[in-house]
Each structure stands twice: as C-alpha cells, then as structure tokens.
Amino acid sequence: MLKRSLLLCLTMAAGACTNEAGLERQSVFGEATRHNAAVTSGDLNFVVQLGQRFANEVPTTINFDFNSARLDSQAKAVLDRQADWIKQFPEVRFKVFGHTDAVGSDAYNRRLGKRRATTSVNYLISKGISRKRLEAVVSLGETKPVIASPNRERENRRTVTEVSGFVRDNPLLDGKYAAIVYRDYVQSAVVEGTLTLDDGLETKLGGE
C-alpha cells in the first residue's frame, strides 16, 4: 500500500513538472517565433532601419510659436523636404506626433498638440501625400519635452514625423523589405556628385 501511494505521488509530481516545463517552453518559443515573424515581415527590423534613414536624411521636427498651431516659413520648408522623401517610398506609412511646452493645463496642451500634428499632416497631404499613409495623429501634449522646464520653450513646441510601418496592400511589397529600405533615391532627389563604382569607374549623379 505504501509503495502504491509513493508511486502515485511520484507519477503526479512528474506530470506536474512535465506540464510546467512544457508551458515554459511554449511561452519562450512562442515569443521567439512571434519576434522572428515580425522581423521577417518587416514590422520590426526594417521599419526601424527605414526610420533611421528618414531621420538621418531629412529633419523630422518642426517648431511652433507660443500657443499656436500655425506653420511658419521654416516649418513649411522642413515639411516640404519630408514630403519629397515620403514620395519616394509609397509603401511606407508615417505618424506625426504633436507636442507642447509645459505652460497651460494638460488637457489644453493635448488639444494644442493635436492641432499642431493635424496642421502638419494636412500640409503633407497638400503636397501630394495620401491621407491613408499618414496614421491617426497622436498628441503627446507636454509629456515628452526636449527641455525639462515649466517655462515657454520653443524646442518643446513641435511636431515630430516618424516612420510607423508599411502599407500592406501596396503592390510594391513582395516580402523584399530590405530592397525597400536600401533603395536609392529617384534621380530627381539624388544630390549632385560622383559615385565610385566597384570597378573603379566614376559616374555623375544628379541633374543639370
């Protein structure tokens, strides 16, 4: 009787250990599989790389006057450059984040941040960017300052444009996201200069 009880306990313990180990393996491998799938589909690695390219090649931020969502000439010039870059990647989507300084209530600043982001989005649309490629505008209000200060700070009054993903139904997407990330500029956007090819020859870049 004692042996039978001991055997039963050992069997139950072994089963419990097997189940727990199985659940742990399923959780770990499941997370790794989801991560690998995301990287393969471009949702992580290539979006990050393309975002870095965007940030390196054009200004991502514009600034505003105090308590204003009006675009000045400098802001429009930056958005023009953003629009030119965005046009070269019709399979990419973007988010525009609106920010304010710390003056005023949180509720008011969130509304103001939303107005600023909406103004920026509308300007990009006016330059020929599809509204479908500009994701729902997000307002961060005063919660992420560039300069931590309770005072009026122009650098905090801004919108920031960021790559957010890929347009899923775009015919250019065939799974080769790397080619998209590293695709060269169209000729009209290439800075004039020379490019040394692998065989040592040089070719002129840009227009007249």
Rank of each mutant, 00 (worst) to 15 (best):
A117K: 00
D65C: 01
N156D: 01
A38D: 04
S188I: 09
A69M: 03
E142A: 11
L6W: 08
N109T: 02
G30R: 06
T161I: 13
L10Q: 09
L79W: 01
V48I: 14
V190F: 11
R25K: 11
G15R: 12
K3R: 08
G193C: 07
K95L: 14
D101Y: 05
G200C: 01
L195S: 10
D72K: 05
Q49D: 11
G51Q: 10
P90S: 08
R152D: 06
A117I: 00
A69I: 01
L6Y: 06
V28A: 04
Y108R: 12
L197P: 02
L134T: 00
R168Y: 09
T196H: 06
R70V: 04
R70L: 05
V190N: 03
R168K: 08
T194K: 07
N56T: 09
H35W: 13
E162V: 14
C17Q: 14
L173Y: 10
P150V: 07
D101K: 04
G207H: 12
V160N: 08
R93D: 03
G206R: 11
N109H: 03
G141N: 10
N67I: 03
E20M: 15
S41T: 11
S120D: 05
N156C: 03
T203Q: 08
Q74A: 10
R131D: 06
R93Q: 06
T118L: 05
R81H: 13
A38L: 14
T33D: 02
S27Q: 15
V191S: 13
V186A: 09
D43T: 15
F54G: 00
G42Y: 05
I147D: 06
L172A: 06
R81Q: 04
R81A: 03
L195D: 10
E155A: 14
A16G: 12
K127W: 05
V96I: 15
S68W: 02
A16P: 00
R53S: 01
L173R: 13
S120G: 03
L8V: 12
G104C: 05
S73T: 02
G104L: 03
Y108L: 06
F89K: 09
Q49T: 05
M1F: 10
Q26N: 14
S5K: 12
P145Y: 12
D43L: 14
D199P: 00
N122L: 11
E142F: 07
